[in-house]
Lab assay of single mutants.
Amino acid sequence: MQIFVKTLTGKTITLEVEPSDTIENVKAKIQDKEGIPPDQQRLIFAGKQLEDGRTLSDYNIQKESTSHLVLR
């Protein structure tokens, strides 16, 4: 499924993911596309910070959901 990640600069990154993917996996995909190390990434969805060990389905992130990327 596709999800979108919006950066603070207003850029939207499109990612191909599975509901069973962990947040860690998603951060690795963002690193592949954008070159941002996962330890600098914070992903926010529905006002919550997403934890590495959880999956997209844990957070009820469905296709075409948009989460926000904040850099630390």
Rank of each mutant, 00 (worst) to 15 (best):
M1D: 02
M1E: 02
M1W: 12
Q2S: 10
I3S: 00
I3D: 01
I3F: 05
F4P: 03
F4R: 10
V5E: 01
V5G: 01
K6M: 10
K6Y: 09
T7N: 06
T7L: 14
T7W: 10
T7F: 15
L8A: 13
G10E: 04
G10K: 04
G10S: 04
K11W: 08
K11D: 07
T12Y: 11
I13Q: 01
I13S: 01
I13M: 05
T14G: 05
E16F: 12
V17L: 05
E18A: 13
E18W: 13
E18C: 13
P19R: 06
P19K: 06
P19I: 08
S20P: 02
S20K: 08
D21I: 05
D21C: 07
D21N: 06
D21P: 00
T22D: 03
I23A: 02
I23G: 01
I23F: 02
E24R: 14
N25Y: 11
N25E: 12
V26A: 02
V26E: 00
K27L: 05
K27S: 01
K29H: 04
K29L: 10
K29P: 00
I30S: 00
Q31P: 01
Q31D: 05
Q31H: 14
K33M: 12
K33I: 14
K33T: 08
K33Q: 12
G35Q: 05
G35H: 06
G35L: 04
G35I: 02
I36G: 02
I36P: 03
I36Q: 02
P38Q: 12
P38T: 14
P38L: 13
P38H: 10
D39P: 07
D39V: 09
D39M: 09
Q40W: 09
Q40N: 09
Q40H: 13
Q41Y: 12
Q41M: 13
R42F: 13
L43Q: 00
L43T: 01
L43K: 00
L43N: 00
L43C: 01
I44D: 06
K48S: 08
Q49T: 15
Q49V: 15
L50T: 03
E51C: 11
D52V: 05
D52I: 05
D52G: 05
D52R: 04
D52Q: 04
G53C: 08
R54M: 11
T55W: 03
T55K: 10
T55Y: 05
L56Q: 00
S57K: 11
S57T: 08
S57G: 10
D58E: 09
D58Y: 14
Y59F: 04
N60F: 06
N60D: 10
N60A: 08
I61Q: 02
I61F: 06
K63I: 08
K63S: 14
K63F: 11
K63Q: 12
E64I: 13
E64D: 14
E64P: 06
S65F: 09
S65H: 07
T66H: 15
S67N: 11
S67C: 15
S67V: 15
L69F: 05
L69A: 02
V70C: 11
V70S: 05
V70Q: 10
R72K: 13
